[in-house]
Simulated assay, not measured.
Amino acid sequence: MQPNLLMIEDDSELAEILTHFLKRYNITVTNYEDPYLGISALSLKKYDLLILDLSLPGMDGLEICKEVRLKNDIPIIISSARSDLEDKIIGLELGADDYLPKPYEPKELYARIMSVLRRYKKSTYPQEDVPMTLILKEESHTIFFQGTPLTLTPAEFDVLAHLIKKNNCVVSRAELLGSALSLNEENESRSLDVLISRIRTKLGESSKEPKLIHSVRGIGYRLQA
């Protein structure tokens, strides 16, 4: 697969250098110097990764990172000349997958891109037969359902994340209850049923006609995503 990247970078000379360099590795880059146009492009076309500068005209890159992450699961690499450690920490907390301080060699950016894409693929497809219906992003502690982030309690997140990791496998009630510390307050078997019911509701399904989470009598649950 030939990666198709979006770049939001107002340094046109740098953008051109990086675009030509990455083309050698069959990576296509579309750059927007205007951050608003770059954000709009995400809703018009599918991109595999976003390279994001922080010092942009009219809109701070950290705000862009926050806005993009709320609406999109695209991997993000921040590429910035801002050396403030706080910017790096905030960027990663907002959901960026990597932070590359300028100046850097284009080959390092290429290495970072391939590393992030490999991690993203592994996180998205923990098993070969897991499609894109549910996407677990452990770095940002988020689960996406059909491209939209779910609003989950800590216990709901832990249960659903564990089911995603064990996709198509039957998971016992005991394993689910012991899968995370956040379940300690809800460690009764009946509470697990309540959690599963709440998760099903957020996935738009019911226990009578489950499409994703199936009950296995006497054992536990199985996610078929």
Rank of each mutant, 00 (worst) to 15 (best):
L44S: 15
R217N: 11
D87V: 08
S191E: 15
A96I: 06
T124F: 13
D193L: 15
I76T: 01
A81Y: 10
S206W: 07
K71E: 13
T201P: 02
S83F: 10
L22K: 02
I135M: 13
I51P: 00
A180Q: 07
Y125T: 06
T19G: 00
S115F: 13
R222G: 08
F145L: 07
L109W: 05
L62T: 14
Y25E: 08
S115A: 14
L44E: 15
L223G: 04
L176N: 08
Y221W: 13
E175S: 10
E205A: 04
V171E: 09
I8H: 05
S123Y: 15
V159H: 03
F145K: 03
P131A: 11
A225P: 03
L5S: 03
S179N: 12
R119L: 10
M1F: 12
G178L: 12
V130K: 11
V68G: 01
M1Y: 06
T19E: 02
P106F: 01
H141F: 08
T28Y: 06
I90F: 08
E93A: 13
L183S: 07
E188V: 08
Y125L: 04
L22V: 11
S40W: 02
H141M: 10
K71T: 14
D87T: 09
R200G: 04
V29S: 00
Y25K: 11
Q224E: 14
G178E: 14
D73S: 10
N167L: 01
L56E: 00
Y32L: 13
M114C: 01
I77P: 00
M114D: 00
T19K: 01
L212G: 05
Q127M: 10
I74L: 02
Y99G: 06
L50R: 03
Q2W: 07
M59C: 07
S191K: 09
R190I: 15
L18D: 00
Y47C: 01
D129H: 10
K165M: 11
R118K: 15
E13F: 12
D10H: 12
K45V: 11
L18V: 05
P35D: 07
R118H: 12
I17R: 01
T28L: 04
L181Q: 13
Y99R: 02
I90R: 15
E175V: 07
L117P: 03
D98G: 03
S197K: 15
F21A: 00
Y36G: 00
S215Y: 11
R222C: 14
A155K: 00
L37F: 04
V68W: 08
D53N: 15
L37Q: 11
A155F: 02
L117S: 03
L183D: 00
L44I: 02
L192A: 01
D193P: 03
P154D: 10
A15H: 04
P149Q: 11
A15I: 00
P126G: 05
I135Q: 09
L62H: 14
D129L: 13
N168A: 12
E93G: 05
T153Y: 14
L52F: 06
L100I: 09
